[in-house]
Design a protein around this nucleic acid. Structure first.
Lengths: 249, 249
DNA sequence: TGTTTAATATCGTTA
DNA sequence: TAACGATGTTAAACA
């Protein structure tokens, strides 16, 4: 079992050398800053990452019970045979104090991780899929602009249909709710204000609630079904095509 | 160094026994479910919590790069000398696959943590908020004394209202019960004894039970709503001001 | 069980 | 720095 003095030395060395620190132990935790919190004695996991972010995890649950973001200042010392770890930040001013009364396990190591994290099938990917393949909306549809700023937010895609009529498109990754229909109508009203003619309004999403569908029908909002999964497949195909073209050209 | 077979055995044992698992190692991670993600080879930390939630942390950043919530099903096995950990969930259907190509460190332990996590201000902080900002009680209110000793305890705050009438204030961090109303009335009686005139009686708390509210109405006790959350905001604002003043002065 | 709201939200991007 | 939207948001409160 590591002595408290050895633990302090090992932690401070690891922190200054940019090594990853893992401590399992019995501790109390106090946080003061954007909020205040107290957590009495219990066995938990403390992580000090290489960017000096700190996480305190209880035995259950997805979220850390306490934390401190990267860029904070870390100090460790002993007090009455206890191991104290304090992380402070100036902007915003906040402080996390961990009082470890018993060390169960301590381990430090320099982690190397250069890999790129790739994620697909988000709302952004659905937008890219439509831009890459506008006929997903309907034949003859053309994209004019994406992320056009309006009061209260952005129009995901602004386009023109086969007959030259303007189309305002709202994309949702999950089920469309009543609020999403309202938002699209608000944005469309601004386009009508600006261009003088009422645009078509289309929501594209994997599904729509019955309430939202009713409201959409009443307000003249159209719905097109597209799952993030299918959008992902379109992007992948498109990428494959790009690769083929660049290899050929 | 732990062998892969030993690691599988230790992890499966720990998971079924409800122990906490920590693995530092070189790994690839794939997620499929609400989205799709792929993360190439790199050194990371894997946590399997006692509720079978899984977290994968890179060397930097607050958030886990991949995770799986509690209640998922966990399996571990070996494949070509690699350690595979897969966590699956049915609703929504999602899967996390961790392929560990090199184990740097493995540790399992049953963590006991019964402590209650308390966030936001304590009763003491609510008192400080009122002292810092007496208009929380009402316009023209002034604090005369805090923690004045009486038979049976202390008066949280003794003050004077706009018309010069004495005010006895009782602070509660949680819901006010009948007993709290009784206590305030007992303390007020002593103030009346001492000063010769009946003081106003105010309870300040985030909420009050209907029974206590009825009793308060009958006994002439007033109620002011203040949540620990709001008290905390006032303290924080005050502290920010103090810091500014101390820097300037 | 489904819906709404808060979070020390975090994390980007943009003005 | 502030504002704003997206997040595999999560988690709690509410109906």
């Amino acid at each position: 079992m590591t002595s408290v003095e050895e633990a302090v030395r090992e932690i401070m060395l690891a922190v200054s050398a940019g090594r990853f620190v893992v401590v399992l132990g019995e501790m109390e935790v106090v946080y003061e800053g954007r909020s205040l919190s107290w957590l009495g004695k219990g066995e938990r996991l403390v992580i000090i990452k290489q960017d000096k972010s700190v996480l305190v995890h209880r035995p259950t649950g997805y979220e850390p019970v306490n934390w401190q973001p990267s860029g904070s200042h870390i100090e460790a010392w002993t007090e009455d045979g206890k191991l104290i770890i304090v992380s402070t930040r100036t902007s915003p001013p906040e402080m996390l104090k961990i009082t470890i009364t018993r060390i169960i396990h301590l381990f430090t190591h320099e982690l190397r991780d250069e890999a790129i994290f790739q994620m697909h099938a988000r709302e952004e990917d659905m937008k890219q899929a439509i831009i890459a393949n506008p006929s997903l909306i309907e034949d003859g549809f053309r994209v004019v602009e994406s992320e056009r700023k309006v009061r209260g937010g952005y129009i995901d895609i602004l386009g023109v249909d086969r007959e030259g009529r303007m189309v305002v498109i709202e994309i949702k990754r999950e089920s469309v709710g009543v609020g999403d229909v309202d938002q699209l109508v608000r944005y469309s009203a601004q386009i009508e204000e600006e261009f003088g003619s009422k645009p078509r309004q289309i929501i594209i999403a994997p599904m729509i609630t019955s309430k939202a569908a009713r409201k959409a029908r009443i307000l003249g909002v159209e719905f097109r079904q597209l799952s993030p999964r299918r959008a992902q497949e379109i992007i992948r195909k498109r990428k494959g095509l790009d690769r083929f073209l660049s290899e050929e050209g």
